[in-house]
């Protein structure tokens, strides 16, 4: 075989792999929000994708209108979105805690549609992008280059942020009292309440953490693709959900793994099979997982009881 061809295809493969990891890291950040909320209240928070979108837009707004420095804007946005998560839970989901599942699900969809249209009214339907001058200058520079493979500092930054946030999240869940309370609620809400855990407060905290991570993901994607639009949360949300399902819904390490696997699968699928069906890959993966291994890679299978 032609050596040059082999080198080219290998470097393409490596480039795709790194791109996949970057995208997958972002999916993982969003997926964690779905899976944590699902863990504590057994509800798919359809509006989570919209929090991700709002994260991107709020940062954009702060940077362009109020000229807040980028990293300060990120911190502010993350805090605001955490607050939005709590508000969403209070306004929409908490009143329906004991209502039938269908009611909560319809509420979640309603909330998602509502938030999406708030953004549509506020920022319009056209695609926006962060002005280059507002971003840290190292984002545009190349970090590594070998042959055709090129990895920018932005990608390195994204991978690093994702990795660090995942470590922090892991530490919160496994090594703090709040994290223990979260896991207790995921196991059994009533018993957790009897043990003196303030269930509603912990659920709020879960929403805050999930939404903050979603906001970070939104900002990263907005910068990476250099584009924000009001419906961006809807496809990203479904893909992240697919990632959460792939990893096993309710399992945080599963969501991280699922996100990365899905991101890599998507980039390879788009590169080697068909780029037109890029968005379809996530749906196909999700449907296949639900069909053949509904508990996902790391999830525990549950038995339906009467």
């Amino acid at each position: 075989m032609d050596l040059q061809y082999l080198v080219d295809s290998l470097s393409l493969f490596f480039q795709q792999f790194v791109n996949g990891l970057t995208v997958g890291g972002v999916y993982a950040l969003i997926a964690v929000g779905y899976t944590m909320v699902y863990g504590v209240i057994e509800l798919i928070n359809f509006a989570h994708g919209e929090i991700y979108m709002l994260g991107a837009f709020i940062a954009y707004h702060l940077v362009t209108v109020y000229h807040v420095p980028f990293f300060a804007a990120v911190v502010l946005t993350v805090m605001l979105c955490g607050l939005f998560g709590i508000l969403l839970d209070r306004a929409a989901y908490r009143p329906l805690r004991n209502a039938p599942r269908l009611a909560a699900l319809i509420t979640a969809i309603g909330a998602s549609i509502f938030l999406q249209n708030v953004a549509l009214i506020k920022w319009g339907a056209q695609i926006r992008s962060f002005p280059q001058t507002s971003l840290p200058s190292f984002f545009g520079k190349t970090a590594f280059q070998a042959g055709d493979v090129q990895i920018g500092w932005l990608q390195v930054f994204m991978l690093l942020v994702t990795f660090v946030l995942m470590l922090v999240l892991h530490a919160i869940i496994n090594h703090t009292r709040t994290g223990t309370a979260m896991r207790a609620i995921a196991q059994d809400k009533r018993t957790a309440a009897l043990m003196g855990i303030h269930v509603d407060r912990i659920i709020s905290f879960t929403f805050a953490i999930g939404s903050s991570l979603g906001a970070v993901a939104g900002i990263l994607v907005g910068v990476f693709y250099n584009a924000l639009w009001p419906t961006m949360g809807y496809t990203a949300g479904v893909k992240a959900f697919a990632a959460a399902v792939l990893g096993g819904i309710g399992s945080v390490p599963g969501a991280m793994l699922g996100g990365v696997v899905l991101g890599v699968a998507e980039v390879f699928g788009a590169g080697y099979i068909s780029s037109a069906y890029r968005d379809g890959i996530a749906y196909a993966v999700m449907i296949l997982v639900i069909l053949f291994k509904p508990s996902g890679i790391l999830g525990k299978s549950t038995v339906q009881k009467v």
Partner: peptide, 22 residues
């Protein structure tokens, strides 16, 4: 007000779903 408000009828639908369930 952005002119996109004409497309935002769904805002009301979203709100409707939430309120109806409540």
């Amino acid at each position: 007000i952005s002119p996109d408000i004409v497309n935002a009828r769904y805002l009301i639908f979203g709100l409707l779903l939430v309120i109806m369930m409540r």
